[in-house]
Simulated scan of single mutants.
Amino acid sequence: MREADIAGISPRRKGFTRRDPKATLAPDLVERDFTASAPNRLWVTDLTMISTGEGPLWLSAIRDAFSRRVVAWETSARPDADLVLTTLEYALAAREVEPGKLIHHADHGCQYTSIKRTTRLARAGVQSLRDPVRGRVVATRAETNLALFEYIDGFYNSRRIQERLGWLNPLEFEEKHYTKQPTAEPTNLNTRQPALTS
């Protein structure tokens, strides 16, 4: 996001996202190891607030721990369960997920402990775990969405090389993985088109 001159914020004020005290917390299935041996084994997700002249815009993104590729993202003026569920639906539609093979890592925020989200993960055969949560002001939410699209889909996934990936970008790293597989076909290379939200 720095390359696109977009900054999220990390507020330290109390009550940023609240966990439902009645929600059952999922176990730590990865034991703080955020690496994966293949695509679609561990997805990491979080919410980021981006300030705009129209008020906050919330970015929900899911990243594959194997390639560090952002597999899905969505924005909304509200940081609610519908936002994280929409992002999850984009990710499930874009990737071939084997039931019982994927862990979806999120924080303790109420959006991630919602019944809608946990039910959808269960129907897809995805295990869930959670973790504690830990700029520039753009004029409009639409401009922010476009900047995010240009950064995530136009730069980060397709051009940003990373040392951990052998100096490849996330798409190249995944393509290299799939070319080594005897019968595997690569998954959809596009995450999504930008949506103009309010």
Rank of each mutant, 00 (worst) to 15 (best):
V133M: 03
A65C: 02
P79M: 09
P11H: 11
A23W: 04
Q111N: 06
L88H: 06
W73E: 01
V84I: 11
L171V: 13
Y178V: 12
V138N: 13
A142H: 09
I115D: 12
W58A: 08
V71D: 00
V44R: 03
A4R: 08
Q127Y: 10
V138K: 04
R130L: 08
G166E: 10
L146S: 07
A124K: 07
M49W: 07
V70R: 00
R120L: 05
L85A: 09
T118R: 13
L121H: 05
R160I: 11
S158Y: 03
L92E: 14
L168H: 06
P27R: 12
P21I: 13
A94T: 14
R192V: 10
R160Y: 09
T35E: 10
P39F: 05
Y178L: 09
P11R: 14
D107Y: 05
Q193T: 12
S128R: 12
L47S: 01
G125W: 10
A26C: 13
D28Q: 08
R192S: 09
N169Y: 03
A94E: 08
A4N: 04
S10I: 13
R69N: 00
I62N: 00
L121V: 07
D80P: 15
R160V: 09
H177V: 06
S37E: 08
K22I: 08
P194T: 01
K176A: 15
G100Y: 09
G125S: 01
M1R: 11
V71A: 00
L121P: 08
T17V: 05
S10V: 10
L42N: 00
Q111R: 04
G135N: 15
G166I: 06
L189H: 11
L92Y: 02
L42C: 01
A23S: 15
V44K: 01
D46I: 00
W43Q: 01
Q181W: 10
A139E: 08
G135F: 12
A147P: 04
V44E: 01
L47G: 00
K180D: 12
L129S: 14
Y178S: 10
A81N: 11
T17G: 15
V30I: 15
T191L: 05
V126Q: 07
E3F: 13
S114P: 11
R18M: 09
Q193P: 06
I50M: 12
H177D: 06
